[in-house]
Design a protein around this nucleic acid. Sequence first.
DNA 1: ACTATTATTCCATAATTATCGAATTAAGCC
DNA 2: GGCTTAATTCGATAATTATGGAATAATAGT
Lengths: 104, 104
Amino acid sequence: MNVEAVAKQLEALGNATRLQVYRTLVRAGQNGLPVSRIQEKVGVPASTLSHHLHRLIVTGLVTQERQGTTLISRANYPAIQGLLGFLADECCADVDAESDGSAA
Amino acid sequence: MNVEAVAKQLEALGNATRLQVYRTLVRAGQNGLPVSRIQEKVGVPASTLSHHLHRLIVTGLVTQERQGTTLISRANYPAIQGLLGFLADECCADVDAESDGSAA
DNA sequence: ACTATTATTCCATAATTATCGAATTAAGCC
DNA sequence: GGCTTAATTCGATAATTATGGAATAATAGT
């Protein structure tokens, strides 16, 4: 996972509305939720929600599947786990590396 | 930790330049780095870097300490751990909760 | 084909973010 | 005070993001 892609995912989650959408989908679990249900829960106009969902989808954090006229959205767990893994690697790795290169 | 604050932190990390700055600081460890050293490593103009650093500081992800004329910046580990904890809670909690609100 | 439902895309606008040179502030030294 | 180094703030501009009404597309039922 490269820095650019990670930054894009963080940016996608770094908006209160999108974070709420994402949280809503996580809570819904594998069943996912129709867009209209997300809209009820989050309370934003349809077009605005659609834009936000798109952002989550292109960054790979959410997937969609059509069922008739309704679109089911789901949180993409492997994606968030990859993101968490990247950040965890960052924050917990070689903290003792000094500027002169010598380990403690 | 509320959603707004978390979103702000994610947004702060959700920019390639800032993410690189943050990664640089993580690698530098507890010694931290002077702003000028970060600038050398990341390669952006001083004023641009200063704005990015400010963003990381106000969201609590980075701290600074003055040593004479130089400012030492450090990654704030508790902050990133709090953020990771929040996201981990999200992505692994009550996946079975259905749209009718009843837990499994 | 017509209608209803669901959701997206079009379009425009407001708001925020990113960028960076120049001027300024901060701290220390002579 | 004057000089140097370090970094921020000012100020202006470009670029991106967010928002949402209206129009359009997608699917299905009659």
